[in-house]
Each structure stands twice: as C-alpha cells, then as structure tokens.
C-alpha cells in the first residue's frame, strides 16, 4: 500500500484544485478487494470515471461526498481539508460542499418539485436560486408535482437542480442518465454541460456510455479492480484502440473530425471504436450520436446511414 503523507508537507496548499487519495478495503460480492486511488483535478474540469462494474467507481463518489469512510488517505478541496486520516480529520457529509446526483435520483417522495429544491437551501440562505433553477431546467409546469408523477427524465432534472441548489463546489453524478432513452440522454447531456459551465462546478461523472463520455468530459480515468489504469482525454483513452474493420457492423457515431479534405468519423461498434473516412458530402448527413452501419468494401470501409 502506498505510504500516505499529508499534501501540505510536500506542497503549499493550492486553491482551485481537488486532491484525492484514498485506500480502502472493500467487501464485494467476490470477496475482498482494495481500492487505491489518487488523483488531482483542477477547478472547473469535468472528469469521467470509467470502468467495469465493481471497479469502485461509485465508491469514489461516495468517499468524496462523505458517505463512505476510507482506511487511509486525504481529500482536499480548494485548500479545505475534508479528510486526512493521519490527523483524524473526517468531515461529515453535510459539511462538504458537494452536490450528489444518485443513480436512483433519491428525490423526496413526500415533497413537491419546488419543495425538493427548497430543502437544499441552507438555513438562512437565500432561496432565490430555486425559481431560477426551476425555470432553467424547464420545470415550471411541474413545480407543484410530486416525484412519482414525473417521468425519468423529469426526475433526473429535478435531481440535478436539487444538487446544484446548494451551490456546491463539486458536482458528483453517479450514472445519472443510465435509465433514460437515447433521445432524453442527449438533451440531458446538454443540461449537464450547461450546469457545469454556468455554475462553475468541478464535476465528476461515473459513466460507461462512450458517446456520453466523449461529449461531456475533459478527462477520463479508467478504473479497474480499484486502481487507475489510465488517465487522459477521451480521444486519447478510447481512440487509440486497434482499428477494426469487420464486414458490416453497426454502431453509433461518437466523434466527427475534419482532417484536410476528408472527415474522420469515429464509430462505436460494440466495445471497439472504428475510425472511418468520410467525404464532405457523406459527413454532411452524419451527426454524433447517430446509429450507422460500417461496411467493408474491398479494403476501405465505407459508411452507410441507417436512419
């Protein structure tokens, strides 16, 4: 296990950065495993944690929010020490400036949309942000509804608005869009990007949906068995994989880049990313998120629209 030293002993405290270093023994369904993670994240960045289930993605978010304790490590947010096991510092969840969007949204069933948001306002704080958020998230017509009267996408918007209402430093999203259909996903990804920018948040997202990761993240951490395997820009992480050109496969466009006179279209087929060259005319009919078929004609794959 890594030897932990407090960051202050090596570096002066830095503003506008999140430092995270945690070791924890996890009791999973497959026996004991260790989580040993450390990363830093500059303010205003959007980081995605990617990896197989059971890799510890959600646990990292829970540790940050103060919902799960660690064995060793520290968390420092913008110069504020939230956790330091060497000094027995461990702030409770309620003191940490964090907004958490749970996978099941965790909306309070007995409160209306408006009341759910108002609950997040600190005592004596201004509730001015509530109507602002309601309007911004297009919830005006639903403000007096209870969560069980809302659709999945609407609940997701309420959960996001509620997490932001407290004006947190860090926004944590635990696969928030996994229960939604593609169309809804697309719209809500826009909302997340907008929230992230407009409220100057540092955002950490757990996701396994590659198109989503490409659209949203500045950086990706690949997690496996409790360790960080790789870290980098989405294109660095996912596009360097071997280009495959199977005969006739279907997939989803995740990236279109102009390169000289042609376009390079990255298509996610099953779990591999295929890069295909498209002419300007072909590319004009394509957009990210579209379902397409990649077919190999002699040696050069060509790309055909499916919708």
């Amino acid at each position: 296990m890594t030897n932990y030293t407090h960051p202050h002993t090596t570096d002066p405290p830095e503003k506008d950065i999140l430092r995270f270093k945690a070791a924890k023994v996890l009791n999973t369904a497959h026996g004991k495993s260790t989580l040993d993670i450390s990363f830093e994240l500059a303010r205003g960045r959007l980081l995605t944690i990617y990896g197989p289930s059971g890799a510890g993605k959600t646990t990292i978010l829970r540790i940050l929010a103060g919902l799960t304790d660690i064995d060793e490590g520290f968390i420092e947010a913008d110069g504020e020490v939230w956790v330091d096991t060497t000094q027995k510092i461990n702030w409770p969840a309620r003191k940490r400036s964090v907004g958490f969007v749970f996978q099941d949204f965790a909306l309070f069933p007995h409160l209306t949309v408006k009341e759910n948001l108002e609950y997040a306002i600190p005592k004596g704080g201004s509730a001015k942000i509530v109507p602002e958020l309601i309007e911004w998230m297009e919830l005006t017509a639903l403000r007096d509804q209870r969560p069980n009267q809302l659709s999945g996408g609407q609940q997701q918007r309420v959960a996001l608005a509620r997490a932001i209402a407290r004006k947190p430093r860090i926004l944590l999203l635990d696969e928030p869009l996994s229960a939604l259909d593609d169309n809804m996903r697309w719209k809500l990804q826009d909302t997340i990007i907008k929230a992230h920018r407009d409220y100057n948040l540092t955002t950490i997202l757990v996701s396994h949906h590659l198109p989503e990761i490409f659209r949203l993240s500045d950086e990706v951490i690949c997690l496996d068995k409790g360790r960080i395997e790789r870290r980098g820009k989405p294109s660095d992480i996912f596009l360097e994989e071997k280009i495959s050109s199977k005969f006739k496969v279907t997939g989803e466009i995740i990236d279109i880049v102009k390169s000289d006179i042609v376009f390079i279209v990255s298509v996610l087929c099953a779990n591999t990313v295929v890069k295909v060259i498209a002419t300007t005319e072909e590319a004009a009919g394509l957009r990210t998120g579209q379902k397409v078929m990649v077919a190999s004609k002699a040696f050069n794959p060509i790309i055909l629209r499916m919708e």
Partner: peptide
C-alpha cells in the same frame, strides 16, 4: 439514498429524521 441525499444537502441527522424519514 434518501437519507444520504439529505446529508449531502447539508442537513443534520435530526433534521433528516424529522423532515425526510418520518414523513415517509
């Protein structure tokens, strides 16, 4: 997650009990 959500929204265990858990 109801209880946890309340905590991440800055509420104490007592407030969470009275305002979230008991009504539900």
């Amino acid at each position: 997650s109801l209880k946890e959500a309340s905590h991440t929204l800055g509420k104490s265990a007592f407030t969470t009990l009275i305002k979230i858990l008991l009504p539900n």
